[in-house]
Amino acid sequence: MYENIEQLQLFFPEVTIENGIDMTTVNVPVEKLLPVMKQLKDNFGFNYLAGLTAVDYNEEDRIEVAYHLMGIPEAKEIRVKVNLNREKPEVCSVTSIWPAANVQERETYDLLGVIFKGHPNLTRILCPDDMVGHPLRKDFKKEGGE
């Protein structure tokens, strides 16, 4: 078990580590996500997926998926981010590592249109099945809005 998150770079030199306002943030290239996550869970003790969501940066033409991990019971926290192409936002599903990701990935798909490859049942979860578009994208047209 490794204590220091810097040691992650020993395994994956391509990740960058920065200190956010609240917790350490790890930027991971999209193709390395699954092995990094596995490493974080198995050897760094981040056994609990505390949050999974995405943010649409339409002006920068990217979608950023943010994973918040937690180590139970020490309550240590870490954020993992991957950047996706806005036109084709595809990333590997982490359901095989944390089953908790199942509903959260469905939600992120539903609201932001991120495709999670390898997800067992990637369908809309909150919005109606026949809906067009993904509401949390910045260019989603609201009815009656300004």
């Binding site: 609990y48 139970i72 019971p73 309550a75 944390w98 089953p99 959260q104």
Partner: peptide, 24 residues
């Protein structure tokens, strides 16, 4: 419970004394 992200009283009923008020 941990793998499925279950927290709160439901997690504590499964045997782990994990409470953010105490842990963090």
């Amino acid at each position: 419970a941990i793998a499925y992200g279950v927290t709160g009283p439901n997690l504590r009923a499964s045997g782990l004394p994990f409470d953010l008020r105490k842990a963090k």
